[in-house]
Simulated scan of single mutants.
Amino acid sequence: MATLTTDELIQIRRDLHRIPELALQEVKTHAYLLNVIQQMDQTHLEIMVPSELPTAIFVRVAGRNPQRTIGYRTDIDALPVEEATGLPFASTHPGKMHACGHDIHMTVALGILSYFSEHQPMDNLVFFFQPAEESENGGKLAYDLGLFSGQWRPDEFYGFHDNPDLPTGVIGCRNGTLFAGTTEVNIDVIGQSGHAAFPQNANDAVVAASALVMQAQTIISRSIDPIQSGVLTFGLMQGGTIRNVIAGSVRLEGTIRGLTQTMIETIDQRLTDICRGIELTYGVTVNLELNQGGYWPVENDPALTTRFIDYMQSNPAVQFQETAPAMTGEDFGFLLAKFPGTMFWLGVEDDSPLHAATFTPHEEAIQAGVDAMTGFLTMRMQEN
């Protein structure tokens, strides 16, 4: 099989778009990917499907004179979104859609892999087709299972996310943080219910929870450097049953976003301190649960990212744009905390945002992404 053509890549993207699957359920997607990979020249390829993470695929391309192993990651799962694009190749799975462009991500990865299956690279390459990016933090799962060991351990790691706000085919990147890290916040405030007319015989969880929310808003304004950015938002507050009964418990659910792991840990600690203070002040019990999992900030490695940006800026075939940090989350951040590397944007120019039911990325971006990365990786392998 020769290197995949542009038309073949577009057909692959459309095939994948038809069969979106949620985190850790990517059975059809896995089978489709494996079939495409197995049709490539296998001379320098080795495929691993880990039994511990059965919808993941690892592919190693043996280098002809390797100095390092370079990793490349793509995510493969979809979102619980009912598609409303009206495309002839729309999702055939009700309530599921590739609304975040992972079909584009997978197709670009296959294009890069196809190229290097026909043009043996200088260094070893490891491609990681990762399940469960949208939830269940598949990158962390793979790491914790020890799957990045031995010949499957990358010395450096690369990956991208499509971006509807950038023109089609534009490569966007920056040194430092590309994506914020995220932490889910769950808080239960437990007081004592009672009659609304006798507050002295109860302990109002609504009052305590309200104070907690207001105090928590001072974390960003008073504990975080104003030159940097952080977010603490409570999107859910539930408590009480009827107007004349004092609520004995309140549930709060929210999210923390931070541009560095240190910042997130600072916000976590300040929120923990405030919860303890609310317990003492209001005589309630406050149960705080912080769940970050693998959704760490995507912090690009300075040296590797400088090299990446220099290549993209100097290549006349590439349109490059330096981008600002985004407050959206991406679980590639966990892997970049374990292996140096770079994440970048690929412009797909669409009026609809990521996760929208009408998201329709421009397919012309696929070949642009393949060309940019095969060129960069070839250049990178020529360096010491």
Rank of each mutant, 00 (worst) to 15 (best):
D351I: 08
F359Y: 13
V126H: 01
R13L: 08
N287R: 15
N186V: 12
D15W: 08
P50G: 08
T43R: 14
I76L: 11
H102R: 09
P164F: 09
S314N: 15
A209H: 01
Y158P: 03
W152E: 06
E289S: 15
F148C: 05
G191F: 02
R276A: 11
H105Q: 10
D75W: 08
G146Q: 07
A357P: 10
L24Q: 14
I220T: 05
H105P: 00
I264D: 03
A78R: 05
D351V: 07
V185T: 03
R64N: 15
V286Q: 05
D331G: 04
I274C: 01
L236F: 10
Q39C: 13
T342Y: 02
L53C: 10
A196L: 08
I224C: 00
V231N: 08
Q367G: 06
H362C: 11
G95Y: 10
M343Q: 13
G181K: 05
G235R: 03
N287D: 15
H30E: 12
L232M: 00
N35W: 14
Y158G: 04
K140R: 04
N287I: 13
T5Y: 12
P316S: 13
G176M: 03
E133W: 04
D155T: 00
V318L: 06
T266G: 07
E118Q: 13
T358R: 13
T281G: 09
D75Y: 09
N201D: 14
Y295M: 14
D371V: 12
A211Y: 05
G101T: 07
T74L: 09
Q321L: 02
A372T: 04
A202I: 03
V298F: 06
L87S: 11
P154R: 01
D165E: 15
D165T: 15
P316M: 12
M48S: 14
F58H: 09
C275F: 04
G333E: 03
P20F: 02
L125C: 09
A202Y: 02
E253P: 03
G333K: 01
N384K: 13
E363K: 08
Y282H: 12
K140F: 01
A365R: 04
T92D: 10
T92G: 11
N384W: 12
K96Y: 07
S193G: 15
M379C: 12
A365H: 08
L147W: 06
M327T: 10
A324D: 14
F157P: 01
V284L: 05
I227F: 13
A132M: 08
G95D: 10
R380G: 00
L212Q: 00
G169E: 01
F160A: 06
A99C: 05
T3V: 14
N65H: 13
T281N: 09
R14S: 08
P167A: 07
T92M: 10
T218M: 11
L147Q: 01
Q25A: 13
G191H: 07
H30Y: 13
N163M: 12
T272D: 15
S114T: 00
P297F: 07
F129K: 02
L236N: 12
M263C: 01
G277N: 02
L290D: 09
I171L: 09
A142I: 02
P199N: 02
N163I: 08
P361C: 06
V170S: 10
P164D: 10
R73T: 00
A90L: 02
A180F: 03
S352T: 11
E21C: 05
Q238I: 07
G329Y: 05
L33G: 01
F128M: 10
R13E: 11
A84N: 14
M97E: 12
G258L: 08
M312Q: 14
I104R: 09
G369F: 08
T306Q: 14
